[in-house]
Design a binder for these strands. Structure first.
Lengths: 228, 228
DNA sequence: TTATTCTTCCGAACACTGTTCGGACTACCA
DNA sequence: TGGTAGTCCGAACAGTGTTCGGAAGAATAA
């Protein structure tokens, strides 16, 4: 049965269908692009854990082993998918205030990743895709235009990038738990208010205002970075 | 053969050994602490991927299924191990300059995690262990002592924590690749210097000075955070 | 047309993974 | 001595990423 299903996916046996076959074969050649497209669908719809080689192959109407003709490993697929997310980050051309433009770039970056929360699980490996590099080039260029040079330039890019990544990772980590867990965490701290007095008193609500915190933190960072 | 090996681990059949058995059984009772201790050894010695339930059980001289009497899931083990790492972060009592003390706390935090690079892979889930909460309590307390209140306090803690985590994640991601990969990455960018001119010109050496960048970024951030 | 190369594809297997369940063994207490 | 808790684990389950030898198809050559 599984066999028939698989066969009927790869080949159409209905009467007269042979006339359509060659064309549709040429219209749907398996390519890297199609593979990462299908991977993105699975990732966006069901999260990082749902992307398995077998499911990906099934979505493409193909056997699992076939994918390995186009991709060295599953991690390659994830890297390609992540770069496709980076492609969503609009990179401007002109600008008036370099510092404001940096803020806009980093907001766009964060928003793109937040739209695809599975991306947080992929960030733990160095990325060198073209869109990711384009984003970093833009960041360096803006900071250089702001007057930063030599080691301060690297330090500023390091700080800003890592701030974005850390913020994303934490927000996704908490938002992927459902509300009951977040409430339980708050209760856990409240119950131990003599061990964690300041935390119990001032740590925010279970659903924090992530956007406000990110914006304010970024302002602080940019304020400390500008050359004098 | 595998059977015999397993049996000889659980039980000692040498002549006369029965006299020693009950005592050693009582000296080595399986506990959560022993489990996370063994997990830490495996993680530190061979990295996150090397921690499998079977290997962990083997190290403890126990069958895999036995562990599930002490721990709900493998992720529990990782959470416990991570909190053991947080326990290494020394938390002071007195201080003179709150801002300098925050810097020291965050440095200690980062250093502890860098000593156990596998920790980076665990950071993607919310942590609520006692030592991790103690660290956050200390951070909140110091910032409150510095005069921060209400929303700014949360924003500052958010920014500082996420900066540390993002920095750690990136550094570990790059350092876990061996040098040849880092050089290849630098070469990749250099070859495309017309697409990434600023990057090619100013992005640092393959082995960056992570400590300097972290320290400088932290100074910038703290400078932008202090209330006026 | 027939024969031959070349490419694409995939069934089946491999060596793992985390986890569950029923029963076996032990230690204790009546 | 019998019964009862508690601990432990062999065996299996359902899945994972990946490899390999060969089958099927298209393209080229004779």
């Amino acid at each position: 049965m599984a066999r028939r299903e698989q066969a009927s996916r790869g080949r159409d046996d209905r009467a007269g269908s042979l006339w359509l076959q060659p064309e549709s074969k040429k219209r749907d050649p398996l390519t890297r692009e199609r593979i990462v497209g299908a991977a993105l669908e699975l990732l966006d719809a069901h999260g990082a854990a749902a992307l398995t080689v077998r499911r990906l192959a099934e979505q493409l109407g193909v056997a699992p082993a076939t994918l390995y003709g186009y991709v060295r490993t599953k991690e390659d697929v994830l890297d390609l998918a992540l770069d496709a997310v980076y492609a969503e980050v609009r990179i401007g051309e002109e600008y008036e205030d370099w510092s404001a433009e940096v803020a806009e770039l980093l907001h766009a970056w964060r928003n793109a990743l937040l739209r695809h929360p599975w991306s947080a699980t992929v960030l733990g490996r160095p990325q060198l895709g073209p869109h990711m590099l384009a984003r970093e080039e833009r960041l360096y260029a803006l900071l250089a235009a702001g007057g930063l040079t030599a080691p301060e330039l690297q330090d500023a890019a390091y700080a800003l990038s890592n701030y974005v990544i850390g913020s994303l990772l934490m927000q996704v980590a908490w938002q992927q738990q459902d509300e009951s867990v977040r409430h339980a965490a708050a209760g856990h701290i409240a119950e131990r208010s003599e061990a964690y007095p300041t935390l119990a008193a001032h740590r925010g609500t279970p659903d924090a205002d992530w956007d406000r915190s990110f914006t304010n933190g970024l302002r602080s960072l940019l304020g400390g970075i500008a050359p004098d």
